[in-house]
């Protein structure tokens, strides 16, 4: 089996150079899409026929919740790659994804609670969707705590990889909880195949906001991973050269 291309792709130096080139563009696209989507949703989209204006929280809630899941998937894949092929960059990526995912997961939970109060009549209900989402937040926190509990980098990455892969079973549970059980949380409005049950005047700003959040997530992930690469590789000659060259304000 040939895995050599894998190792070439995973060189921290190569990553640092490539990510430096697309950093500005990702950031600009993220800012433009997020601002456009949120302002559109907040100011221009019509109110919902049942919920009135409170539904506008959806333009933050849905992107945050979807990112919480996608970031976990990416984290688990990175952990698995590091677990099997011992690729340092994948472990660094997994380490960087945990706080990002945790922040979006808490945002989804909190905005959900704020939305739940005026629509359902309760901040929190122990239904399957909300509970499994809370478990996801605990998983993220557990991953961060586990990593900081080890002094050995290698041990930490192995332990985190195993926890991340075990926690992977929670993702389909979150996704399909609204179909498998009777929950207070409604079913999915966005569908990849078939018609979304949302009017185009609301769907468009939501999709723009989703794209913005995804770009933003990629942007801050690159920022984090670049800092992590410098931190872990500071003994190498290329990082030393980089630090001598760069002014302190460079990202």
């Amino acid at each position: 089996m040939k895995w050599t291309f894998f190792h070439r792709l995973s060189s921290p130096k190569w990553f640092y150079e490539i990510s430096g080139r697309c950093l500005v563009w990702t950031g600009a696209a993220a800012l433009a899409c997020t601002l456009c989507g949120l302002l559109w949703g907040l100011l221009f989209a019509p109110p919902d026929y049942q919920q009135g204006n409170s539904y506008r929280i959806i333009f933050i809630h849905v992107p945050a919740a979807s990112l919480a899941l996608v970031v976990y998937l990416a984290l688990a894949v990175m952990s698995a790659i590091n677990f099997v092929w011992k690729i340092k960059l994948a472990d660094m990526a997994a380490a960087c994804l945990a706080p990002i995912g945790a922040s979006f997961c808490s945002l989804a939970l909190v905005t959900g609670a704020i939305w739940g109060k005026p629509t359902w009549g309760a901040w929190w209900v122990w239904d399957a969707r909300l509970t499994s989402m809370l478990i996801l937040l605990f998983l993220y926190c557990g991953l961060m705590a586990l990593r900081s509990a080890f002094t050995s980098q290698d041990m930490a990455s192995r332990a985190c990889a195993i926890l991340a892969m075990v926690g992977l079973v929670n993702i389909p549970v979150i996704k399909f909880s609204v179909e498998w059980w009777s929950t207070l949380h409604q079913g999915a409005s966005l569908r990849i195949v078939g018609q979304s049950s949302m009017d185009p005047s609301m769907l468009k700003p939501l999709l723009v906001s989703l794209a913005g959040f995804y770009m933003f997530c990629l942007f801050v992930f690159l920022l984090r991973l670049r800092a992590e690469v410098v931190w872990r590789e500071w003994r190498t000659s290329w990082v030393r050269a980089l630090l001598e060259r760069s002014a302190p304000h460079v990202l």
């Binding site: 907040l42 204006n53 409170s54 506008r56 929280i57 706080p99 909190v110 704020i114 933003f216």
Partner: peptide
């Protein structure tokens, strides 16, 4: 927002602070 202003604006300001934290922290 026809009475929903508190909820909507709280959610948006929290969303904004999470985005800001994600950028500033790294």
């Amino acid at each position: 927002m026809q009475g929903h202003g508190f909820y909507v604006w709280t959610a948006y300001s929290l969303g904004f602070s999470v985005l800001l934290w994600n950028f500033l922290s790294p």
